[in-house]
Design a protein around this nucleic acid. Structure first.
Lengths: 158, 158
DNA sequence: AATCAGTAGTTGACATAACAGAGAGTGTTA
DNA sequence: TAACACTCTCTGTTATGTCAACTACTGATT
């Protein structure tokens, strides 16, 4: 292995932590995705969008805002919303005063499906991810990695 | 640690840890991938494969073994290896004694490109991921999440 | 030696993502 | 009010991954 990494810190430590994070994510998602599809009938990408809309005000979000809060590109979102819309879970509405814009809004059906899916998914994460760590470990991980989503929230507000 | 989720556990704790892991991964990958492409000329999926072959013995790995050690399906791997092969970084060779099989082997060029890419990528992770955690936090995360890749290694050997 | 279940890897059809650029609308400036 | 730069969203093309079906081979059984 390379020797010229930061000498003040045990070599491999960062890499071990990174590797852990990477594997925890992929392994968990790899089983959570099929589980969600089986129970809710749609994939995690849909749940991401639905959850964003759920957290937003009743008049939904513009495509642009969805883009900022998700990990998708704009063109990816157009098509993703297309699919969710043709399943009847969201609706595109005109924006008063800006004819370029679109608001994406949860339908009642979408809200129901979100609630069920969200509950199931959380239970799944509790079981499959949470089971493998002690309470102290969960706390340590949560605290150590909190910095990564604080960034996001700052960006979404700014 | 097997089946029963500890009911005495604070409600949002698992979720906060999971959220941290998720965001740390996506945020870091989101910047590491373009960086690798700019410097090495290929994406992270290639580096995964090259690194597996690098760690293996000189006669490489069979598709099957690559599959177990990566997060790809077999057909996905077929195509990934196709691409890497046509870039000249790996070579498919016949397996003595089993005419169904294929060994995937690093070419000298592949080894060189791996070394450079691996060093760059590690430095990048050191900086962008490692920078945001204290040494104690790195240690805690590494230890807490080690279970997720030990599974993999066990599976690869068993 | 004929059969047949199982294994190794590839291929075809399809789903979903990204990038670049198009089309429509807005608002400011001259 | 014509021109222009900018914004918002969608579309065309291409890349990459999955699932299911397929070919080729192996090894055990009869």
């Amino acid at each position: 292995m390379t020797k010229d990494v930061d000498a003040s810190r045990p070599a491999g430590l960062v890499y071990d932590a990174w590797r852990g994070v990477l594997f925890a994510t992929s392994r968990t998602l790899q089983i959570a995705e099929p589980d969600l599809i089986a129970k809710a009938g749609f994939p995690l990408t849909w749940l991401d969008v639905l959850a964003q809309l759920y957290d937003a005000a009743d008049d939904g979000l513009r495509m642009q805002e969805l883009e900022q809060r998700s990990l998708f590109t704009r063109s990816g979102l157009t098509r993703l919303v297309d699919r969710i819309e043709s399943a009847g879970l969201v609706r595109r509405e005109a924006v008063a005063g800006d004819r370029r814009g679109v608001r994406v809004v949860l339908t009642p059906e979408g809200r129901r499906r979100h609630d069920a899916a969200f509950a199931d998914h959380n239970k799944f994460i509790e079981r499959e991810f949470g089971r493998r760590l002690t309470e102290a470990q969960l706390q340590a991980v949560a605290e150590a990695l909190a910095t990564f989503w604080h960034d996001d929230e700052a960006a979404a507000k700014g």
